[in-house]
């Protein structure tokens, strides 16, 4: 027990004193979070603004719904001129019972949206005017869909990625450098099992992952970024630990295969970087083409990402952890087994 504690402490000190690894562990992913978070802050969720002339019950209903925003004009020509100039997609002109929409042809999607909304409200007003109950009923209910605000998918994505990178690199570089410097040999000559040495390194990696999680989420929660955590955010902790273990074993495999630190970091990059892009670290993978989604299912990072997204922002419960956990545990077992087969004590 004391060997485990002293070794963990020794490795922790070694990690903390390495400025480069501190940077890549904490600052580098945070840079991505900050840059993307700020760049994409205003994207999505914005409402369409149209010109408005006149007023009436339809306009009041539209205003109440909040479906559209209005810029009021006293004069019809001025409103249409705004549409012609391309400043606004449409103008709504209300004269008593008559509701006209003048729209720009250039942006058909936006025009169709405006037309649909206005038409719907006019129909509703007509129906109400007849005093008849509707023959067909229609009910709309809000669904938590894939289209999250950017910070909501960036935070879980960058957290998973940052944890994966530092676990893979930490394990691979430690293993290679210990082999090269014959620390492994020295350990083999001591009455201590390789497992206890490895697990003390793993403990350092999981500790680092928890700190990463606290820092990244803490920053994303700042009002500038505006992350909203779901009530079940704490379920991310077991996921974080499983993910660290999985990527730690991947790092062990890389370290077992490679002979130099340079080769190990190249190999780790080749494995982790494409995985990050294809697993939804920087954009939601649901918007990707079907083939890419299929491919990304093969990556453990994709499942860690999905799990993080579900528990951190989508508010899903324990059941959302089942698949990601199963994938990560399975991945750990297979990869750790492979790593133990190719492991070499010395060059």
């Amino acid at each position: 027990m004391t060997a485990f504690r002293t070794l963990s402490l020794a490795m922790f000190k070694g990690f903390v004193r390495d400025k480069a690894s501190l940077f890549f562990t904490f600052v580098f992913p945070l840079l991505f979070l900050v840059i993307f978070g700020l760049l994409l802050r205003d994207a999505g969720g914005e409402k369409t603004k149209i010109a408005l002339v006149g007023d009436g019950p339809v306009v009041s209903a539209l205003r109440d719904s909040g479906a559209l925003e209005f810029e009021s004009f006293d004069d019809e020509d001025a409103a249409v001129a705004k549409v012609k100039d391309g400043d606004l997609p449409a103008a709504l002109i209300v004269r008593g019972q008559r509701v006209d929409v003048r729209y720009a042809q250039s942006d058909q999607v936006e025009s169709a949206t405006v037309l649909g909304i206005v038409n719907g409200f006019v129909d509703k007003a007509n129906l109400a005017a007849t005093g008849q109950p509707p023959t067909y009923t229609f009910a709309a209910e809000k669904v938590e869909d894939a289209s999250l605000a950017p910070i909501q998918y960036l935070t879980p994505g960058i957290l998973s990625w940052g944890v994966a990178v530092s676990a893979v690199f930490g394990a691979a570089l430690t293993l290679v450098s210990w082999r090269r410097k014959q620390v492994l040999r020295r350990i083999r000559l001591a009455p201590v099992s390789a497992t206890s040495v490895l697990s003390s390194r793993l403990l350092v990696s999981t500790g680092v992952a928890l700190v990463q999680g606290a820092i990244f989420i803490g920053v994303a929660l700042l009002p500038v970024f505006g992350l909203k955590l779901s009530g079940s955010w704490w379920l991310a902790i077991p996921l974080l630990l499983l993910g660290t273990t999985a990527f730690f074993s991947l790092g062990m495999l890389v370290g077992a295969f490679t002979k130099t630190e340079e080769a190990a970091s190249a190999a780790a990059n080749i494995l982790v970087l494409p995985m990050a892009f294809l697993s939804g670290t920087f954009f939601p993978v649901d918007q990707a083409p079907a083939w890419l989604r299929a491919v990304s299912n093969a990556f453990p990072l994709r499942h860690m990402n999905d799990g993080m997204l579900d528990v951190l922002v989508r508010g899903k419960g324990v059941e959302a952890l089942l698949l990601p956990s199963a994938v990560l545990v399975g991945f750990t077992l297979v990869v750790a087994f492979l790593a133990s087969r190719v492991f070499k004590w010395e060059e």
Binding site: T2, R5, T6, L7, A10, S177, R186, A190, V192
Partner: peptide
């Protein structure tokens, strides 16, 4: 990596 002389000895001693 990056341990002082005393820490090295403690780490090896702990083995």
């Amino acid at each position: 990596e990056r341990l002082t002389a005393k820490e090295q000895l403690r780490a090896f001693g702990s083995l």
